[in-house]
């Protein structure tokens, strides 16, 4: 009898089993679907980050700001300065060049084939980072790189004139190799959107300058800002490129954090925690900025 009822029920209300379960155990059932994801994020992202905050603020005798205050020592302060400067410079330069390139291909009289090639290449180049990128630039602008030797033949000795690939300027040149294509990928959709209005503006008698000032830039302002923030983040977190290029001999925050740990051993945990928390704070600022920009774009 009981079985028969159920069978009838199953025919009349096809997915009543699921519906019933949903009615009576909504929380438990949802938990099963979300639990693995949330537990993983908690265990390997939130807790490690919280652990760093805890480790950098807990002394032997209760909470302390002593470790975080270490960051104010000249060496660490300078590491943050150079890291932020490097990311900012490559974000702005990469942003400007990326926008110009994207604009040239979207709005210029350049064959269509070029456009898809540029986008594919940007996808490749923005992912071509780290160790191989450092090698490529060493082959190009290192002491015996092709371009270095070529320029020397024309009497321009880069390394005698104070340039080195293994310092700040070299890092900027190298980072741009992934920053520019990243900008192209991020901004091309917005630029295409913006140029669509140029015809309308022209029909209403606007000059090119007037179009950009009154229409183009206002449309692009937030997307540009958002893309540059992403570029900043991508430069700020970069480790492998800088490490491979300079053999770890440059004072950047990611490199300093890397020096604190070899294998599973951490040399001075509290200092490492403080350095890492500093990075999270900077990135959190960038993230909040991005969220504000996105909210502004939607509104």
């Amino acid at each position: 009898m009981q079985q028969g009822m159920e069978r009838v029920d199953a025919v009349l209300v096809p997915y009543s089993g699921a519906a019933l379960r949903h009615r009576f155990l909504p929380l438990a059932e949802s938990a099963i679907w979300f639990a693995p994801f949330l537990a993983f994020s908690l265990a390997f992202l939130v807790l490690p980050a919280a652990g760093l905050v805890a480790g950098s603020t807990e002394g032997l005798h209760g909470p302390t700001l002593r470790y975080l205050a270490q960051l104010l020592q000249p060496q660490y302060l300078m590491a943050y300065e150079s890291s932020i400067e490097l990311s900012a410079v490559t974000a702005v330069l990469g942003g400007i060049v990326g926008v110009l390139l994207s604009w040239a291909v979207v709005a210029g009289r350049i064959p269509r084939l070029f456009r898809s090639t540029l986008l594919t290449f940007s996808g490749v180049a923005s992912n071509f980072a780290g160790v191989p990128l450092a090698f490529a630039f060493t082959s190009t602008l290192g002491p015996v790189g092709m371009v270095t030797l070529l320029l020397a033949r024309f009497g321009l000795n880069l390394y005698r004139d104070g340039f080195t690939l293994f310092g700040f300027a070299g890092l900027v040149l190298t980072y741009l190799y992934f920053q520019i294509p990243l900008m192209v990928l991020l901004i091309t959709p917005a630029l295409e959107h913006a140029t669509r209005w140029s015809e309308a503006a022209a029909n209403l008698g606007a000059s090119t300058a007037a179009y950009w000032w009154h229409v183009g830039l206002p449309i692009l302002r937030l997307p540009l800002l958002g893309a540059m923030l992403l570029l900043f983040g991508s430069g700020f977190g970069a480790y492998a490129t800088a490490y491979a290029l300079t053999s770890g001999m440059i004072n950047l925050v990611p490199i300093l954090i890397g020096q604190e740990m070899i294998g599973n051993v951490v040399y001075s945990p509290a200092l490492g925690d403080a350095l890492a928390v500093g990075m999270i704070v900077v990135m959190a600022g960038v993230f909040l900025g991005l969220r504000l920009v996105q909210r502004g774009t939607r509104a």
């Binding site: 390997f44 490690p48 760093l52 990611p254 599973n264 951490v266 945990p269 999270i280 990135m283």
Partner: peptide, 15 residues
């Protein structure tokens, strides 16, 4: 995004 790879691995190793 907020936790760069080097910070992520540092945090995981520390924990």
């Amino acid at each position: 995004f907020v936790v760069p790879p080097i910070v992520l691995v540092f945090g995981i190793v520390r924990l």
